[in-house]
Design a protein around this nucleic acid. Sequence first.
DNA 1: GACTCCTCCTTAATCAATTAAGAGCTTAAT
DNA 2: ATTAAGCTCTTAATTGATTAAGGAGGAGTC
Lengths: 349, 349
Amino acid sequence: MARVTLQTIADRLGVSRATVSYAFSRPDQLSDGLRRRILEVADELGYAGPNPTARSLRLGRAGALGLLFGETLAYAFADPYAIGFFQGLATAAEDAGVGLLILPLPHGDRRSDTVKDAVVDAFCVVSLPDGHPALAEVLARKLPVVVVDEPYVPGRPFLGIDEPAAAAAAARHVLELGHRRLGVAMVALNDDGHSGWAGRDRQEGAVFEAMRRRRSGYQRACEEAGVDWAGVPLYELARNSRESGRRAGHALLGLDPRPTAILTNTDVLALGVLDAAADLGLQVPGELSVVGFSDSAAEEAGLTTIRQAKQEIGEAAGRLLLSGEAARPERLIFPYELVVRSSTAPPPA
Amino acid sequence: MARVTLQTIADRLGVSRATVSYAFSRPDQLSDGLRRRILEVADELGYAGPNPTARSLRLGRAGALGLLFGETLAYAFADPYAIGFFQGLATAAEDAGVGLLILPLPHGDRRSDTVKDAVVDAFCVVSLPDGHPALAEVLARKLPVVVVDEPYVPGRPFLGIDEPAAAAAAARHVLELGHRRLGVAMVALNDDGHSGWAGRDRQEGAVFEAMRRRRSGYQRACEEAGVDWAGVPLYELARNSRESGRRAGHALLGLDPRPTAILTNTDVLALGVLDAAADLGLQVPGELSVVGFSDSAAEEAGLTTIRQAKQEIGEAAGRLLLSGEAARPERLIFPYELVVRSSTAPPPA
DNA sequence: GACTCCTCCTTAATCAATTAAGAGCTTAAT
DNA sequence: ATTAAGCTCTTAATTGATTAAGGAGGAGTC
C-alpha cells in the first residue's frame, strides 16, 4: 500500500493536484460537485489529509513552540516550579492554538539532534546552565528565542525575577528576626552532580546563573546585617528532592554551633530540611527557622518562602514568542513576594 | 535579508546544492578543504542549518510524539495523575531522543487545526471523552496511535488499569470495614460542565468511559455487599480540584442520614472532602472514612487510595509508540493496588 | 454579434532539503 | 600502457504540498 498523496487522488480523478489541494483548503475555488467527488475518493483511498510537514514547509510555519528545560524531562515534570511555569506557557500556546514541543536535552553520550531537528516557530529556554551546548544550538536556529530565569543572553528577551533582591529579602527576614547563625542549602549551583559543602570557589563559579545570583543576594543581606558570610555554611545538592533537603538538613544541623535558621533555594529542599529537623526532634520554628523559595510546595507545610509568579512568567514568555515581539530584547522582571508562614520565628533565647 | 538556504551557499561558492548538503550531513563524501570552506561561508551568511521541516519531509520522520490530553493544558499540568503520566511518557521520549508535542484540544469556537497540522510520528491519546471530535482527527491521520485510560478504540492498543475492579476494591474496602451508608464524589463523568447530584441517567450515560466504568465498579461492590446502589448518593463535579471536593463533601455530609464513608474517583477530590470534614468538625477516620483514587496526592494526607502505576503506563505508552509495535492492537492492563492509610476505619458505633 | 464577466480548473513556480547514480580526474596495480 | 579502483563533486529525481496567474467555456449585456 503505497502512500496516498494529493497526486494519487488527482490521478485517480484525472484532475490536477492543485484542484485536489483546493478541495481541502479552499472550497470556494471549486464546484461543489467536483469537491464532493474528490473528498469521496480521498476517503476511499484512505488519504490522511494534506501532509502537515509539506504544508509546514510550504507555509513557512510550524505551529509549535519549542521548550527547552535545563533538566531531564522526568525531572522537570516532578518539579513544582517547572510545572507552574509549564502551565502558564501551555495556556499561552493553547490560546494561540499552537502546540508545545517539549525537547529533551542531549543526554549523556547519545548525540540526538532534537534541537536541530525541532519543527518549531520559536524557542523558550528555561534554566539552562551557563555555556550549555543546547543554548548554542538554539541560537544557531535563528528563530525567536526567549530565556527564562537563566542564563541571561545579551540581545535576547529575558524573563525572571530579581534573584539577588528576592534572595536578600529571604535572608533579611530571618536576620531581622534576630538570627545570627545561618545555614544555607542550595540545589542547582553546578551541574557536575556533586553534593556537599560548597566553598567560595564553587559558590562563585556556579554555572547556574540564577542560583549564583540568588546566593549573592543571601550574602549581601548577611553582610548588610553584619553577619560574616565566610562563616555561613553552605551545603550544595545535586538534585532538588526532599531527600536531598533532608541530607543537607542533617549536615547543617550537625554543625556546632548549630544554625538557628536555614535558607534554601527551593521549597522542595526546605521540606527536606523540615524532615531533618523532625528527625532530630527540633521544633520549627521554635528552635529552627526554615525559608524556602518559589512558593511551589510551601503552603501545606506552612513554609515561609519567596513567591514568584511562575504561571504568569510562563504565560508572558509564551505570549512574547507568539506575538512576534521576541525580536526586541526586553528584560521582563517579575515581582516576587516574601510570604511569611509558620516556619520562621525569632531564634531561641 | 532573504532567507539563507543550502542553495544560497552553493551559489556563493559555485558548487552544487548537493555538495553543501553533504557538508552538513555526510562529511565523508567531501574533501576536508571544501567542507571547511562551505561551513565557513555558511557561518558567514548566517545559515541556520538544514531546515528541519524540509528535512523532515524528505526523510519522512518528524522526530516527535504527539500527546493529546482530554483537558485544557493548564488543567493537565495541575493534575498530579497527568503529571505522573507525562513523566513516564517523557522518559520514553527522552530515551529515544524525540520530542513530545503537547497539543491543545480544539477549544471553544476557535477552529484550530492542531491535530491536523501536528508534525509528529505517532499519537498518544489520553482520557478523551467518548466521541470527542479530536479522536476522529487523530485516527484520520493514519499514524500509530495508542490510547490511555479512555476511550477504548477497537483495533488500537490500549493502556490502563482494570477500572471496575480497582473501583470495586476501593468500595469493598470500606464495605468490609462495616460501612453501610456510602457517598460518592466523582469528577469527569461528563463534559458538560455540570456539578451536582447525578442520577441514574447521568451516571450510566457518562461520556468518560474510564470514570463510567469506575462507577460501575463501585456499584458492583455495593450490590455484592447487599448495599442498595440506588440509595447511594453520587455528587458529580465538573472540575477536579480541591475546592470541588470540598463542595461535594459539604453536599454529601449535609445529608440525613449522613454517609459514614465517601468514595472519590481522584485524590484531589478526596482532599477536598477532608477539608469539608474539617469544616464540619468531623473526625477522620473516626467519624468519616474517605477513599481517593490514583495515589497521586495522597501520601502526605494519609489518604487511603488506589495506586496505579501512572509513570509506568506513560513510559509503556511511549515505548510502544516508538518501537513501531503500535500496529498490533494490544490491551495492556496494568496492576492497581489498594493502599490503606489513615483515612479509613470502621464506622462509628 | 461582440464584449465583458464569472466560474472552474490547470499550469508551473515554489518551499528546502536528501541521496542514488554518474561523471571526471587521480592514483595504484598488473 | 591499460584497467580498475578511489575520490570528489554534480545531476536530477524525490519528498508533498500551496497558490498566483492564466485559459477555456458559458452566461449576461448592449
